[in-house]
C-alpha cells in the first residue's frame, strides 16, 4: 500500500527553481531517505509534503487523499503529517510529557500513549523533565516520540541527526529505525549523509537540481546507479571509459568482465574496493601511489596509471603503508557495471 505519492512537484522562489517535476513514492511502513547535496531541493520537497509551502505545479497524495495539487492546498494541521525538525524544536515552555502529548487528544493521553512512545525511544520516566534539562540526543528522541505519538500516516524527518556528534548519531540512528519499525510508522528522512541514508533506509531517493534522479534500495543505488552523477555522489567511484565486446570490455585496467552484455564505447563504474593491489613484480596493471589516506577501518589510495589515468583504490585487509611513489600492480575484482548512457537532450 502506498502512503505518499509525489508527482511532478515543482516549486520556485523567484528565479530559483527549488523543485523541477520531482517524483517520489513511499510504501506504507517503510523508511525512505531523500539524499542529495545542499541546495538540491530536498528540504523544499519535505516542506511541500508537510504543507508549509504551496506547490507551483504537480500533485501530492497522502494515502488516497490528495493534499496538494492544482487549486488544492490542504492546511498542515489537516494533513496529519508529523515533522521532526533538525534541532528537535521542542516547546521550551512544556515538559517532556507535554511535548509528547501535544498532538494527542485527551483520551489518548489517558491511555498511556505518552509513556508508550517514550519507552520506544528509550526515555521512559523522563516525562517531567523540561527540554533544557535534556542532552541534544535526548531532545531528538523526544522530538521523534512527539511525532510518533498521534500515529500519523507519515512522519517527515528533516536531517534529525545533524546536530549530534558521530557516536551519538550512530546510536540514535539505530534506535530511531527500531522505534519506527516497532510502531509500524511510515517515514521520509531528508539527509545529505550517505552513510545515514544507506544504513537505515529501506529506499533511497537521490535528488539533484530539484529532481529525483533515482529511487532504489540502498544496495541497488550503490551498485547500479542511474547515471554518472549518481555513481560519483553515492560513494567513491572510478569511471572508466571502455570498449565493450559482449560480456567483456577492453579498458586501461585490462580486460574486465561486465555485469551485463554491451557492445561499443561505454563508461564503466568500478568501485574503489573492487581494485586489488599487488606487488610490483606480480601480474596486473602497473600504477604508482600518489597519496595514501588512512581512515582507520580502511585506507584510500590515489593511484596513477602509466598513461596518466587516475584511479582510487580502497584497501581493508592490507595494513601495509604505501608511501607516495610506491610502484604496485592493480587487478579488478568482480564485474564492472556499465553506466546507462545519458538520455539525448531534446
Amino acid at each position: 500500500m502506498t502512503t505518499l505519492t509525489v508527482r511532478a512537484a515543482s516549486k520556485s522562489y523567484g528565479a530559483v527553481h527549488a523543485l523541477r517535476a520531482a517524483d517520489l513514492t513511499v510504501a506504507a511502513g517503510t523508511l525512505t531517505a531523500v539524499l542529495g547535496p545542499s541546495g538540491c531541493g530536498k528540504t523544499t520537497l519535505l516542506r511541500t509534503i508537510a504543507g508549509f509551502e504551496r506547490l507551483d505545479g504537480g500533485e501530492i497524495r497522502v494515502g488516497d487523499r490528495p493534499v496538494a495539487g492544482p487549486g488544492l492546498h490542504v492546511a498542515p494541521h489537516r494533513r496529519r503529517v508529523a515533522v521532526v525538525a533538525q534541532d528537535g524544536a521542542l516547546f521550551p515552555h512544556m515538559d517532556v510529557a507535554g511535548n509528547v502529548g501535544y498532538g494527542l487528544d485527551r483520551a489518548a493521553r489517558r491511555d498511556g500513549r505518552i509513556e508508550e512512545v517514550l519507552s520506544l525511544v528509550g526515555l521512559a520516566g523522563y516525562g517531567k523533565r523540561m527540554p533544557h534539562q535534556l542532552s541534544g540526543g535526548q531532545q531528538q528522541r523526544v522530538a521523534v516520540a512527539r511525532a510518533l505519538a498521534p500515529r500519523p500516516p507519515l512522519i517527515l524527518l528533516d536531517e534529525p541527526f545533524t546536530a549530534l556528534d558521530a557516536s551519538l548519531r550512530a546510536e540514535l540512528r539505530t534506535d530511531l529505525r527500531a522505534a519506527l519499525r516497532a510502531d509500524n510508522a511510515t517515514a521520509v528522512l531528508v539527509t545529505h549523509d550517505q552513510t545515514e541514508a544507506l544504513s537505515i533506509a529501506d529506499q533511497v531517493a537521490v535528488m539533484h537540481d530539484g529532481r529525483v534522479r533515482q529511487t532504489a534500495s540502498p544496495s541497488d543505488l550503490y551498485n547500479r546507479p542511474a547515471d554518472q552523477w549518481g555513481a560519483a555522489f553515492v560513494g567513491d567511484a572510478n569511471l572508466v571509459d571502455a570498449t565493450a565486446h559482449g560480456s567483456t570490455a577492453q579498458t586501461r585496467l585490462g580486460t574486465l568482465p561486465l555485469s551485463s552484455s554491451h557492445h561499443g564505447d561505454v563508461t564503466l563504474l568500478i568501485r574503489p574496493e573492487q581494485l586489488r593491489l599487488n606487488d610490483a613484480d606480480t601480474s596486473g596493471v602497473p600504477a604508482t601511489v600518489r597519496h595514501y589516506l588512512f581512515h582507520g577501518h580502511d585506507a584510500l589510495l590515489d593511484l596513477q596509471l602509466h598513461d596518466g589515468t587516475r584511479v582510487t583504490a580502497r584497501i581493508l585487509d592490507q595494513p601495509t603503508h604505501y608511501p607516495s611513489g610506491t610502484h604496485v600492480r592493480l587487478t579488478v575484482r568482480g564485474a564492472a557495471y556499465v553506466l546507462p548512457r545519458p538520455a539525448p537532450s531534446r
Binding site: 504543507g51 492546511a75 494541521h77 496529519r80 515533522v83 501535544y102 511525532a147 517527515l156
Partner: peptide, 9 residues
C-alpha cells in the same frame, strides 16, 4: 510549524 504538523489549528 511543528505544532501545526501535529494536527493543531
Amino acid at each position: 510549524e511543528i505544532a501545526r504538523s501535529l494536527g493543531r489549528g
